[in-house]
Simulated assay, not measured.
Amino acid sequence: MRMIFTSLASYGHLYPLLPLAVAARDAGHEIVFATAPEFHPTLDKAGLEPAPAGISIRQAFQEIFTGDPRSQGEVPKDELEQHIGRAFGRIMPERFMADLAPLIEQRRPDLVVYETGNPGGLFAAHTAGVPAMCHGFGRVSYNGDAASTFVEPLAAFAAELGITGDTRLAWGRPYLDICPPSVQEPQFLAGARRVPVRPVGWSEPGDLPSGVLGRDRGRPLVYLTLGTTPMSQAHLLASAVHGLAALEADVLVATGPSVDVAALGDVPSNVRLEAWVPQSELLPHVDLVVHHGGSGTTMSAFSAGVPQLVLPQGADQFTNAEATTAVGAGTQLLGDEVTTEAVRDNARRLLTDSAVADVARKLAEEVAAMPSPQEVAEQLPQYA
Rank of each mutant, 00 (worst) to 15 (best):
residue 169 L to D: 09
residue 171 W to K: 12
residue 187 Q to V: 13
residue 190 A to T: 01
residue 188 F to S: 03
residue 197 V to A: 05
residue 168 R to Y: 08
residue 184 Q to T: 00
residue 189 L to E: 09
residue 188 F to I: 00
residue 173 R to N: 15
residue 191 G to Q: 13
residue 173 R to S: 15
residue 169 L to M: 09
residue 171 W to Y: 15
residue 195 V to Q: 10
residue 195 V to D: 02
residue 184 Q to K: 03
residue 183 V to I: 15
residue 192 A to N: 03
residue 174 P to W: 03
residue 181 P to N: 04
residue 180 P to N: 13
residue 198 R to S: 03
residue 194 R to G: 14
residue 174 P to I: 01
residue 181 P to L: 07
residue 199 P to R: 12
residue 173 R to M: 13
residue 195 V to G: 12
residue 174 P to C: 11
residue 187 Q to D: 15
residue 190 A to S: 14
residue 189 L to F: 06
residue 172 G to C: 10
residue 180 P to T: 02
residue 173 R to G: 13
residue 189 L to W: 09
residue 175 Y to Q: 08
residue 171 W to P: 07
residue 177 D to R: 13
residue 170 A to R: 06
residue 191 G to L: 12
residue 187 Q to M: 14
residue 182 S to W: 12
residue 186 P to H: 07
residue 199 P to F: 10
residue 182 S to T: 02
residue 174 P to D: 05
residue 166 D to W: 00
residue 174 P to K: 11
residue 181 P to T: 12
residue 181 P to M: 11
residue 187 Q to A: 15
residue 185 E to G: 01
residue 167 T to R: 13
residue 184 Q to V: 06
residue 169 L to N: 04
residue 183 V to E: 04
residue 172 G to V: 07
residue 173 R to V: 12
residue 195 V to R: 11
residue 176 L to A: 13
residue 180 P to F: 07
residue 183 V to G: 03
residue 198 R to C: 00
residue 188 F to Q: 06
residue 194 R to Y: 12
residue 168 R to V: 01
residue 179 C to L: 02
residue 192 A to T: 07
residue 168 R to I: 03
residue 181 P to G: 09
residue 175 Y to A: 01
residue 199 P to H: 06
residue 191 G to Y: 12
residue 178 I to M: 08
residue 175 Y to K: 10
residue 195 V to H: 00
residue 178 I to W: 09
residue 185 E to S: 13
residue 188 F to N: 10
residue 188 F to Y: 15
residue 187 Q to I: 11
residue 170 A to I: 13
residue 199 P to A: 00
residue 183 V to M: 08
residue 192 A to Q: 08
residue 198 R to K: 12
residue 171 W to M: 14
residue 182 S to G: 00
residue 196 P to A: 07
residue 184 Q to A: 04
residue 178 I to H: 03
residue 167 T to D: 00
residue 175 Y to L: 06
residue 173 R to T: 15
